[in-house]
Design a protein around this nucleic acid. Structure first.
Lengths: 416, 416
DNA sequence: CAGTGTTTTTTCGAGGCTCGAAAAAATAGG
DNA sequence: CCTATTTTTTCGAGCCTCGAAAAAACACTG
């Protein structure tokens, strides 16, 4: 079970805490850090002096310009942008997007590229990823040695260890250990994350007021995905990235899903399902490979304009999502929901049936109080989530190490 | 967010760790404790010497009599039974059961009582609970002052703070803050737990090999309940005890459930549902109040004997449970399952349809590898779980105290 | 039965860490 | 220029854990 706390863990953890406080607060003063961490001023002073000496933090103006106060002005502590850099790689349908981000979170280099992910061979897919990363690393603006971490995100299922993609709708290939591949190729630690989990991470940084301890991000796109934060922690399955909300069963034996099974929520609410129903095709019809965002927007426009199969298709989607959420809420209790992706722009068409369905379920006891947010564009969210994930890794594992590196050679004395 | 680690927390946590190690291992030697906690021998020596001095631990023979080894024999450390005592109160349909348990986990006094929970008034129900607790505390064998904790368990929904029962099938009353009531009455800290969660806790102590980090306990009784352990932690909802597996939706608009809604898993797999289907009554038939265990066993016997509505009823139950588990597994990935309660004794009738259904779902990809255990008797499990819950509370909160009660009246000012 | 080997447990000094109090620093206001 | 105020640093005290060595407790051996 869990292990005792060694004496040296103490400093490590408190260092991590200080870095985290700075990352969250922007440019807090030492006093503010002391307040949020609960540690004493002396401790914060010692730790931050270390961190500045190591080039991790840098002093600057305090965050609030309201420095028109009486006493000694606060000195803001900020992350030193040059302390490190991280790289994000987002692989989505027919699209590959890479960015290099400095330690303070600013994008310093990026590249995007169209691919035909559905038909590419395994080697080609891996090759493209490796190549685009290599090009960014060779960018003269980038100091390769400063890149401390790569975070990949992909639509689909990844493993809990964040090493491999297990399955993805964007490619017929399975079980690609992207993290291991990139690590071997570039010698930079890498992780392979699930796209919806990264959306959830990003929402938490974007709006910590609303998305704090418990919330749900649902991707309404070609497939239906979910990122779930419970009790302040990203929820993952025990073996995989988990949270396959889209493949909860809505109707046993029902509509044909892209995954080959029947009755999944996605088989009613995914783009292909809405499109299939809007065209009044049978529920047994093989899901089409891709419906463009433009087509979906046109469908939504028609549905808004007049009653008909289009509107009914959105109603069915809402119903499936509502019952699915109801079942989910039976397990975890209701929580704020963010709808992300192209169909989030059609949430007005989905919401009535969704709320009606949810009211029929155990989780819907206070269905009117459940609040939904819509964000049509998932890509920026996924990128942000990846960046934060990689940066917090650097914060914790690289700048607050001490697992077993007893290697301390020269005892460092106080920095003058 | 999380708070820095103070210097005094260190000792507190390591004390708790040592106590936990002793509770898990039985009579470990100091050397064994050092090994499992990862702390040094000197530290373990210091802490255990403190704990013995405080009467929390006691020396004794080592756990393994295989002490025929060469050197200085190990000295076993055990929990001192007289260090404290706890009380468990389990309230189930028409039955109230109380036990007093010493610090080492032995029952030292108990009492059970039949009640008519379904028709009792709120006051009568509370009164019975208070009275039975009082009688146990007045037992001359018990030192009242040693009773450090009361843990109640009830079938139904409790709140996350473990203070109150929110809703229960065993009584029409709602929102009874049992924990507060008992605390006020006896001045002993109390918690109100969900029965299925306690089953899960107990399974973990009974068989840590099988039920370690991720597993599911499902109560198949009049209602369907669930206790879920994920990543080594008891899973609860964000507001309530959560994990209302029985009220996930199996068929939208389907059979009438005891909760008043339609299509819940329970409306197919609860005792009343199996009974209703076996009698070939309509799915709209109002659920009967109670089906006796004897009636259920008779039903199962008939189903085993010949094809007919009884067998079909169990098949439907299996199907509902299978699809429900499939949806659950879509979220959390498959995990070992313990089926508990009277219908667990009929699991042979349920399993085929359950496995068939689960194979139709996303979580069922490796359905044959999912393993089920059956335990027909839930009450002992619930009692054990309560006892362990109360005892670990004493371990942590009373014998390793020192929460950072920063009681600081000098809060934050600085609002220019 | 004393001596030797082995394993467990305790002791002791060293080194770190956090804390509170006090000092130092930096500014606005008068 | 002096004073009040707030932030930050300094310093000694008090704990805590650790490693090494000593002490303890037994089995085995001749």
């Amino acid at each position: 079970m869990s292990v005792g706390i060694r004496h040296d863990d103490l400093r490590r953890r408190n260092r991590a805490m200080v870095i985290a406080a700075v990352r969250r607060a922007g440019r807090p003063s030492r006093t503010e850090i002391a307040a949020t961490t609960g540690l004493s001023h002396s401790t914060i002073s010692a730790i931050s002096s270390d961190l500045i000496g190591e080039g991790i933090l840098a002093e600057g103006k305090p965050s609030e310009a309201g420095a028109l106060k009486r006493g000694r002005p606060q000195v803001g502590l900020g992350l030193n942008p040059e302390a490190a850099a991280v790289m994000t790689v987002v692989l989505s349908l027919n699209f590959l997007s890479v960015a290099v981000i400095d330690y303070a979170g600013q994008v310093i280099s990026e590249e995007q590229r169209r691919l035909d992910t559905l038909t590419m061979s395994r080697e080609a897919l891996i090759g493209e990823c490796v190549a685009i990363v290599r090009r960014r690393l060779e960018d003269p603006d980038i100091d390769v040695r400063s890149v401390a971490r790569i975070a990949l995100a992909i639509q689909g299922i990844t493993d809990t260890k964040a090493r491999a993609m297990l399955w993805s709708p964007i490619t017929p290939q399975t079980d690609i250990a992207f993290a291991d591949i990139l690590e071997a190729e570039f010698g930079i630690p890498a992780t392979m994350e699930n796209d919806c989990n990264m959306m959830a991470v990003a929402l938490r940084w974007r709006d910590p007021e609303r998305y704090r301890d418990d919330f749900i991000a649902i991707l309404l796109s070609h497939g239906i995905g979910m990122g779930l934060v419970l009790k302040g922690e990203l929820f993952t399955g025990t073996h995989s990235s988990g949270g396959e909300f889209g493949h909860m069963i809505h109707r046993p034996g029902g509509a044909l899903c892209r995954c080959g099974r029947r009755g999944c929520v996605e088989a009613y609410a995914g783009n292909y399902a809405i499109w299939r129903n809007a065209r009044q095709l049978s529920e047994d019809t093989e899901p089409v490979a891709d419906v463009s965002d433009a087509q979906m927007r046109a469908l939504a426009a028609t549905a808004r304009e007049r009653a008909g199969p289009e509107r009914e298709a959105y109603r069915k989607a809402g119903e499936a999502l509502g019952y699915g959420l109801g079942s989910l809420f039976a397990l975890i209790d209701p929580a704020p929901v963010a709808m992300v992706g192209v169909s989030a722009a059609a949430f007005d068409l989905i919401e009535p049936a969704l709320r009606e369905a949810i009211a029929q379920t155990a989780g819907g006891q206070h269905s009117e109080s459940i609040s939904f947010d819509a964000e049509p564009n998932e890509l920026p969210l996924i990128r942000e989530g990846c960046a934060m994930r990689a940066l917090t890794f650097v914060d914790q594992e690289i700048f607050a190490p001490g697992m077993q590196t007893k290697a301390g050679p020269a005892a460092k004395k106080n920095v003058a």
